[in-house]
Amino acid sequence: MESKTKEMVFSFALVITGIYVAIEGFRIYLRAASAPYFITTFSISPGFIPFIIGIALIIFSTLFLFQCLKEEGKGRAEVLKMRWSEFASWVKANSKNMDIAFTIGAVIIMGIYTYVLMELLPFWAASMIFLIALFCYLRADKWWKNLIVAVVGVIAIVIVFQYCFNAALP
């Protein structure tokens, strides 16, 4: 997919983010204007700056969107249509891309370590499982080498931080 198409989709997401931030800024103002705060002047309310930032994001993202839709000899509507069809075919083609799927798989392992293992297990156990899993997934080397590197790595980290730096690990 052409980078301009990716950028167009991203700029849409940015415009939506900008709208959300601006609306949320205004809602913060409304909250601040009521009890117990009673800050009724918009410019000194805590919602003012988020509102301005949201507007700035909308403006710059729209400008960026227009830059993405610029193509010589073609109207913006025509380019928009063309880019959407490019995006659809890119999604279709890349849903079977093994390289992307492989990377996503590795990121999921990192996510499981961060959100699940770290919550359930002590640091050393979570990290050891994570390292062994990721080494094997990445096919770093033979399984026993992966095991040794993971065990030695975690032991070294625990010794350095827990004992040398006196830091309490999770």
């Binding site: 390292l131 080494f135 770093a140 790595g153 931080f161 830091a167 690990l169 999770p170």
Partner: peptide, 18 residues
């Protein structure tokens, strides 16, 4: 081997953030 190094770096990232 970067495939060994980077996962260990991620563990360090976790500790650094924590």
């Amino acid at each position: 081997n970067k495939k060994y190094l980077m996962p260990i770096v991620y563990v360090l990232c976790v500790i650094g953030s924590y």
